[in-house]
Write a protein that binds this DNA or RNA. Structure first.
Lengths: 196, 196
DNA sequence: CGTACTATACAGACCTGTCTGTTTGGTTTG
DNA sequence: CAAACCAAACAGACAGGTCTGTATAGTACG
């Protein structure tokens, strides 16, 4: 039991975290159930009692990943805004930090959509939904700077970000974060040069 | 035998084309050798005589895909420039047409990099190289319009394009091509409004 | 004859998912 | 308190299928 729907079970949590790590590093299809239960030190039936199927587990992992990503974004952006950046700059600084983090291999949601192929797969649907939510989040950040003009600029900035993620993954470097930031600023109405 | 390195063998070509189709539609890891030989109507040993391993075949498929993609780009852009567009507009019109084509499932090279995970895999290296070549191609197109300013703008436009591809795949619609074009034009030095 | 291809069987690894039975630790109930 | 119960997790074998890659023997044809 648990008070706020959290906690659940230790074994379950270990499975999710292990699967998340392996799926991200090596790919969803490349990692088998046996591998997951071995590294999570869990019995196979424990996994199947909690998740029912690998597809179920994949979805659960994406849900977990979303929470984790949101937390990372919030705390890291906080760090940068505290040191004087506006929220858009802080976002791109966070992006760059992500690109440079050890084991970076792109966006789990894009990767899942690619690997699963089947676009009606629950995890694919979830990934697509995540991207729409993500776009809304960018829209909000852009609105803080561009006001009503954000509606026309935010979608483009979102494309810059998605492109930066993919490019960072394929070229194994974080330059694309800088390129995307410069372009984003160029797209915004000019009132640049920090007036704080 | 063949005069210009083309032709090779009918069976080999059938294998490549079949593999390309299946890999793109369902994913590299999801499609097995047995499936490919069945649909290509070829004996398993024929495949292994020509390719040695699945990894070899994957690489060969990407090489084929690159040729095919270049041809598609050239002929389709030609079509649009013939009807009065400049080369940049023609490129984005081509992009949109690609997004709307039946069975569109994103970029084979991104997909391969994602699925293979292993970044030292020959096919991953080839995919990364393809993306650098692609960026050069965009740079050239942008130079026709922006001259020396292209150096600073083309990388951003490339990000817009990569973002548009990924977004079109995940959301299953081609809007992102329009968004990317608008943003690309906004990034270019203003001399817009067709002076032909 | 030799090249290219076919057909088929096979090895051995790995896959997902099921099944049986045991251990553990907490809760209820006599 | 202690006996009885129960849910969760454990261990590991197993079924049935798929995977890549190999081996072998036969066929079509220039």
């Amino acid at each position: 039991m648990n008070s706020a729907g959290t906690k659940k079970s230790a074994a379950r949590q270990r499975i999710i975290e292990t699967a998340e790590k392996l799926f991200y590093a090596e790919g969803i299809r490349a990692v088998g159930i046996d591998r997951i239960i071995a590294e999570a030190e869990v019995a196979k039936m424990t996994l199947y009692n909690h998740f029912g199927s690998k597809d179920d587990l994949i979805l659960a992992v994406l849900e977990y990943r979303e929470e984790q990503f949101d937390r990372f974004l919030e705390t890291t952006m906080q760090k940068f805004t505290n040191s004087g950046m506006d929220r858009l700059e802080a976002f791109f600084a966070t992006l760059k930090q992500w690109f440079e983090s050890k084991g970076f291999r792109g966006c789990s949601f894009i990767n899942a959509a690619v690997e699963l192929a089947e676009c009606e797969h629950p995890a694919s649907l979830f990934a697509a939904q995540h991207k729409r939510t993500f776009q809304s989040m960018i829209q909000e950040i852009v609105t803080e700077i561009a006001g009503s003009k954000a509606d026309s600029v935010a979608p483009a900035i979102t494309l810059l970000i998605e492109g930066a993620i993919v490019t960072a993954m394929m070229q194994r470097n974080s330059n694309s974060a800088d390129v995307a930031l410069e372009a984003a600023l160029a797209l915004l109405p000019k009132k640049r040069k920090k007036q704080k």
